[in-house]
Simulated scan of single mutants.
Amino acid sequence: MFGDYSLGDLGSIFVMQGFAGLILFSVYVLMALGLAIIFGQMGVINMAHGEFMILGAYVTYLCSGFFQAHLPGLFPAYFFVAMGLAFLASGALGMLVEWALIRHLYKRPLDTLLATWGLSLILQQAYRSIFGAREVGVELPAWMMGSVQATDTIEIPINGLFVMGVTVLITLAVALLLFASRWGKQVRAVMQNRVMAGAVGIDTDRVDRTTFGIGCGIAGIAGAAFTMIGSTGPTSGQLYIVDTFLIVVFGGAASLLGTIASAFSISQTQSTLEFFLSGSTAKVLTLLGVVAILMLRPQGLFTLKVRR
């Protein structure tokens, strides 16, 4: 596999693929953060999480067209507006889904899995009816185009740097929300002991709804970031949902550090193997490696101690 390359070529390949893996890692982290919050606190297996991501991508697509047609002078800044709207749209839909569907199915994980899988099919058809079956792409501002020449053989795309910067900011914001805010204290209290949290006056229903909305809103931001590395279609979210669940389970449910470490290891392994092997082979080998580790450590890389 490596025999046809010199040491210098291999070094450049690993650096370039490592950076490509970081872009994939950024999308994985944004997807997995929301899913880890929902699954870790509420125990809900949200099979429609990918469709919330694609909603954010379609919102970004609509913003791109609107700014091009009506506000061309502000087009260079449209992506920041698109990320905010993607968060609001996906978060609002998430809170509506929690109120109309999820709250009736708590403590019934199989039912939530089937219900959210059905919801994903409904959303896919809705996207197909509204936006068409063909994939669409967004027009990026000029300042996001091009690359930074790190060395003679290594180029770093500017939009990749932007995606990673957004991921760092969102991760820090989630960490602050969970560990340094009143809402975060309530979330951790409900996760540790729901009955006692309700007994001391915490509105557990409101915490659940807000948590589900924030988790889905983060998926919407992931969708905005996704438009930089791929085209958007009605079923694009299904390409990421399995990998995202794998990241959450591998890292340890409800563990922020575990989610980041898991996303990094899986994205880097997959990106590097895809250069030397086919994409399907790389995914199979990555999956086998994760399964082997989970057989030795079924609780995941990191776990939180929770009162039962």
Rank of each mutant, 00 (worst) to 15 (best):
Gly8Tyr: 04
Leu10Trp: 13
Ser12Gly: 13
Ile13Ser: 01
Met16Trp: 13
Gly21Ser: 05
Gly21Val: 04
Ile23Leu: 08
Met31Ile: 04
Ala32Thr: 11
Ala32Gly: 03
Leu33Gln: 11
Gly34Cys: 13
Ile37Arg: 06
Gln41Leu: 15
Gln41Arg: 08
Met42Pro: 10
Val44Met: 00
Ile45Arg: 07
Asn46Lys: 12
Met47Tyr: 11
Ala48Glu: 01
His49Met: 12
Ile54His: 00
Ile54Thr: 09
Gly56Leu: 13
Tyr58Lys: 07
Val59Asn: 10
Cys63Gly: 12
Cys63Glu: 06
Gly65Leu: 15
Ala69Lys: 14
Pro72Ser: 14
Gly73Val: 13
Gly73Leu: 14
Pro76Arg: 10
Pro76Ala: 07
Ala77Pro: 04
Val81Met: 13
Leu85Asn: 01
Leu85Met: 11
Leu88Ser: 07
Ser90Lys: 04
Ser90Met: 03
Ser90Trp: 08
Gly91His: 06
Val97Leu: 08
Glu98Ala: 05
Ala100Pro: 07
Ala100Lys: 15
Arg108Trp: 01
Leu110Gln: 15
Leu110Cys: 06
Asp111His: 14
Asp111Tyr: 14
Leu113Ile: 08
Leu113His: 00
Thr116Gly: 08
Ser120Cys: 11
Ser120Met: 07
Leu123Ile: 13
Ala126Phe: 09
Tyr127Glu: 05
Tyr127Ala: 02
Arg128Tyr: 14
Arg128Pro: 06
Ile130Gln: 03
Gly132Arg: 14
Ala133Lys: 09
Val136Cys: 03
Gly137Arg: 13
Val138Ile: 10
Val138Ala: 08
Leu140Trp: 09
Ala142His: 10
Trp143Arg: 04
Met145Gly: 13
Gln149Ile: 05
Asp152Gln: 09
Ile156His: 06
Ile156Lys: 00
Pro157Asn: 08
Phe162Gly: 11
Val163Gln: 10
Met164Cys: 12
Met164Pro: 01
Val166Trp: 06
Thr167Ala: 07
Ile170Ser: 00
Thr171Glu: 05
Leu172Thr: 13
Ala175Pro: 01
Leu176Tyr: 13
Leu177Asp: 03
Leu177Gln: 01
Leu177Asn: 00
Ser181Pro: 05
Gly184Ile: 11
Arg188Val: 05
Ala189His: 04
Val190Gln: 02
Met191Trp: 07
Gln192Trp: 07
Gln192Ile: 14
Val195Tyr: 10
Val195Arg: 04
Val195Ile: 11
Ala197Ser: 14
Val200Lys: 03
Ile202Tyr: 05
Arg206Met: 13
Thr211Lys: 00
Phe212His: 08
Phe212Thr: 03
Gly215Cys: 09
Gly215Lys: 06
Cys216Trp: 03
Gly217Leu: 07
Ala219His: 11
Ile221Cys: 11
Gly223Arg: 02
Phe226Ser: 02
Ile229Asp: 01
Gly230Ala: 12
Tyr240Thr: 00
Val242Tyr: 10
Thr244Tyr: 07
Phe245Arg: 12
Val249Gly: 02
Ala261Asn: 05
Ser262Ala: 15
Ser262Glu: 09
Ala263Glu: 08
Phe264Asp: 10
Ser267Lys: 11
Thr269Cys: 08
Gln270Ala: 03
Glu274Asn: 06
Phe275Pro: 00
Phe276Val: 01
Phe276Asn: 03
Gly279Gln: 05
Thr281Met: 04
Thr281Asp: 09
Leu288Trp: 12
Gly289Met: 02
Val290Gly: 12
Leu294Asn: 05
Arg297Cys: 09
Pro298Glu: 13
Pro298Asn: 06
Gln299Pro: 12
Leu301Thr: 12
Leu301Gln: 04
Thr303Lys: 02
Arg307His: 03
Arg307Glu: 15
Arg308His: 07
Arg308Ala: 15
